[in-house]
Computed example of a mutant assay.
Amino acid sequence: MTVELDLTADPIDLTAALVDIPSVSGDEDAIADAVERALKAQAPHLEVVRLGNNVLARTTLGRPSRVVFAGHLDTVPVNANLPSRRVDGVLHGLGTVDMKGGDAVMLHLAATVTEPTHDLTFLFYECEEIEAIRNGLGRVERELPEWMAGDLAVVCEPSNAIVEAGCQGTMRIEVRTTGTRAHTARAWMGVNAIHALGEALNVLARYETRTVDIDGCTYREGLQAVHISGGVSGNVVPDAALLRINFRFAPDRTVAQAEAHLREVFADFEVEVVDSAAGALPGLTAPAARDLMAAAGGDPVGKLGWTDVARFAALGIPAVNFGPGDPLLAHMQQENVPVEQITRCADVLRKLVTG
């Protein structure tokens, strides 16, 4: 069935329409088709390009600055939470928070703001909720990098309609221990690798997390064991064991500095870095970011977690998270968003792009 979106409709109604198009990661054809078709029909002032199931649109008005808006079209798998429903000022359904409310705000602005004070770019992308190699924003960066350029990037991920600045970096390491196998009846002849992990766990228990203030935003680091494994059978002293650890670090550390810190913390162990992603500094001193803060009012907060703002920060583009919905409800069956947050985000971003 072909779905027709009305981009001039109230962003609340547009959110509901987007939610009712199933778009689990890897199956975004229908929603990407609907978004592309609507932008081409209802926003003739925009250049529109399709790249896989990524839909890109932008103005070329020669403004002195450009604001880039980014939002992913995919969701986690359906969990008996479709179609959408509205109850007492709250919109329920898969994607209402993560992140079709933000997409609706972006689409509404794209179609209805024809004379912005900044040039505008809108990036609607696929496969954010799964492995990073399939992330559509990464594909845009690799194949059409000029579409990522701007003076400010606003990732419309849920933030309770409050500006969340920057984001934490993340790193996963593996600590391995080795020993000598032996029969448990003659355990003194072996060396137990699982027991040897005890000191690594003690290191974690003693570790004092760091809290950092950057541009008025607070980032609290975290170092946690997330997996432990080892063992051969019920009567063998194990000769190998593995501990996986996740480090969420403040954006004043680079990936290299985070790795050096962990190697110092676990200096007595074999450490392997298996995954890492840099964080993003707040970037609130950029002129366009100041304009956003003036439009939003209130104080920004640091983003506790990693988002695609880091992709823009790595390109030297200040980036923030700003969108409707409580991020704590993302991926939950009871995902829902107060409709007033959708309206607030649309109003704030309209003020940003129209002055």
Rank of each mutant, 00 (worst) to 15 (best):
N53F: 09
D33E: 06
V348Q: 10
Q333D: 10
H118I: 07
G279Y: 00
N79P: 02
L120K: 00
R181S: 09
A9L: 13
T170E: 08
C345T: 01
N54M: 14
R210Y: 10
T343K: 13
Y219Q: 00
I245C: 03
V3G: 03
A295G: 07
G316K: 11
V78S: 00
A289L: 08
R206F: 01
R50E: 01
I162Q: 14
P324V: 12
N53T: 09
R350F: 02
A104Q: 11
Y207C: 01
M332K: 00
L243K: 02
G297E: 04
W147E: 10
R142P: 08
I317N: 06
A9K: 06
D13I: 13
S229G: 05
V236A: 06
A280N: 12
A240K: 04
A278G: 11
G283E: 13
D74Q: 14
D88Y: 10
F124S: 03
N53L: 03
K351G: 03
M99C: 04
R134H: 15
V191G: 12
N160D: 10
A41N: 07
A256W: 01
V113T: 12
T343V: 14
M293F: 00
A310F: 10
T177P: 00
D291Q: 15
E131N: 12
I31K: 11
K100C: 05
A43N: 11
F312G: 02
L349R: 05
T218L: 04
P282N: 07
I130P: 07
R134K: 14
A295I: 05
A250W: 01
F312D: 00
V155K: 03
R58K: 13
P324S: 08
L14E: 03
G234A: 15
G95E: 09
P145L: 05
T285H: 14
K40Y: 04
P145Y: 06
V97I: 03
A256S: 11
D10P: 14
L7F: 07
E259V: 10
P64Q: 12
R248Q: 02
R142I: 13
G222A: 07
V55W: 10
N235W: 06
A193N: 04
V191R: 13
L223S: 05
R86Y: 12
T2D: 04
L107E: 01
D119T: 05
V154L: 03
L120C: 09
A310M: 11
R311T: 11
